[in-house]
Design a protein around this nucleic acid. Structure first.
Lengths: 202, 202, 202, 202
DNA sequence: CATGAATGAGCGTTCATTCAT
DNA sequence: GATGAATGAACGCTCATTCAT
């Protein structure tokens, strides 16, 4: 029976999440998690196969969180813009989550199973749907919804990424760039494939 | 004169770059570089004051390379599009450089002196000039050149970043996304500040 | 329970002490201690926070040992002489302890907290008491007890120090010098402050 | 021909001495000396076989310096006291010299040839002479001059050593202890060998 | 279920020293 | 006479991980 009252697993996750959010990925060590939880580092290995498994659980959490936020966006007119805003908000509220979710190279984290990026694809599907809806009004783009959604996503991601890497000029306000990016992303649905490469787009 | 045949310094830089690309920042260690080069770890300290200095040299190298590529873009009509294309090409040709130049968190690399991001600002200035020129034809955007340039940059960066992090759906071709991003970036110059915040824009 | 037969902690302390005695402070390294003990360097960090903590433990051990020896000296007449003899005996029996206790520069060991020299002050207080008692018979010295005690101590320390640093001429027997020092120290209580500085002494 | 104008050897010694006196023994490294002199570390090996040889030269310098100071003490009445005062003054003025001259264990500095402690013996001889002279007035001590001189020396050394190791209580002024030690040392010449061990003293 | 002990590999860095040129 | 390149050994320390109990 656990000495600390409640089951250890959720508490490990909680502290790991806290460390990740507060001090970032490099600060996340088994020793520190254990210290914060109040157990031995070895105890963690009862609940997680290794440190990566713990990190994966955290990443999954992040994707669920993002999914919930996006689901909560009111459907109907303005859905696409809402999704964009919610995505940007999520990144601002949980920068370290965002970091591990979208910046970590698979090569740096070899054991993360590819199928778990499903959550990421779910998000793209959501975006795609909204795009399809919005296109019924201005239906002049032959782009596949997935391709357009990816472009929307990448536009937002670019601004977020530079913002988080603190690469934006001090004379510019970070939120301004994020706003601009959202507005630009709204135009992504209008982008057509290159006329010189007909047939490539779906 | 080197005991080792060729001069060690460029080889250290090359191996460091390779490691950075293949296994990420955390894998970059003096010992591993030394091992790959075939010298002692201490030898590295003959050429670089410390690990950070090595990293900085890598970054500087990258910015010089990018600078040269952008300078070579023919000025005049289509300059902006040319700059965008050259930027994307650079990222594809030198992913390892791109990684250190634009992805590394300052928190992972605290001692990098801020002035050295000058090269990055140079690039933005180049973009800004091209934007100003292109605007004389379609002069309807009140955006400051810097802000617009940053948006252009972030748009390209987003696509590059997702592409390099291998987050793009397999059914999509990476180059397509990059093309789309360039075309979208061209529209970034048209984005106006939020009408609800009059007077903030330049 | 130790994997290694006996408990590691005392063995670490013992080997550290031995190295300190045989090859001096600069030779005391975690790796070497580990090697001598037969464990990993990392194992030492299981018992001591860092190298300094190990050193502090050594010092504390030494002071406890000395304290016990001095407490065992029979009080009453001859107490002062007994304390002196016990101090010298301690130094001869435990030269390695003596070295860390009284020779280490704070600059070589910056992090040693000042309060922990308490043990040293305790010893001085003991000496001071004995001096006060002895003075009731030959009460002609206006020296404060602390100042006199320090002088007694330093007299003994000088002989011990030269003896241990092997600086004494071979034609002289070390023990003779120590004996002489004890007898001289007994006269330290008679030393008066300089007549040319009236009022400074207590 | 030397690039730097003057011959390198004296300048190496000078910088080494400066480092030793200013920042102590542990700060004395070939690299730092070379840096201060303005030459390569390897250049030092032209003039000194190794780092120890450089240190030995410094120690020799120290003994010569001390010797000069002691020679300068006016002979005649008060010679002994003058020698004591000069010795203490030397230690205060050159604490780091004193450190390497009298604290370094032969075990820590194996290659220092024993015969070079001659300078130290010279000092003792000087003391011994002064003691012999002073005894002609109060000739009641059967101690050999060498033994008495050693006791005088050790008395001074004890105070100096504790003072330099910063072991003296803050409420006590270091110079006071040194003064006391000098006065006590003057009595060292009166100390007789133990009556219970007749015949041991010379 | 969880601990305490211990490992083994690795980290960035510093050192005295060597040696061809 | 002195340099620049390079070595090899050591430093204190941290890490994820294992395993008997």
């Amino acid at each position: 029976m656990p000495r600390n009252g409640t089951d250890l697993k959720p508490r490990i996750l909680a502290e790991a999440r806290k460390i990740l959010l507060e001090d970032g990925y490099t600060a996340l060590s088994t020793r520190r998690v254990a210290g914060e939880v109040g157990c031995t580092a070895a105890a963690i290995y009862h609940y997680f196969e290794n440190k990566d498994a713990l990190l994966h659980a955290l990443i999954d959490e992040g994707f669920e969180l993002l999914h919930d936020r996006l689901e909560a966006v009111p459907k109907g007119e303005g859905h696409l813009r809402g999704l964009c805003a919610a995505y940007v908000d999520f990144s601002s509220a949980n920068p370290e989550f965002y970091e591990v979710m979208f910046h970590l190279h698979p090569t740096q984290m070899e054991r993360y199973p590819v199928e778990r990026y499903r959550a990421q694809r779910d998000y793209l599907a959501l975006l795609g749907n909204a795009i399809n809806v919005s296109r019924q009004e201005s239906a002049h783009s032959p782009h596949s919804a997935l391709r357009a959604a990816t472009l929307v996503w990448s536009t937002l991601h670019g601004a977020i990424s530079l913002h988080q890497a603190m690469r934006i000029d001090k004379s510019l306000r970070g939120p301004d760039l994020l706003d601009d990016a959202i507005r630009l992303a709204m135009r992504a649905v209008e982008i057509s494939p290159l006329p010189s490469q007909p047939g490539i787009s779906s």
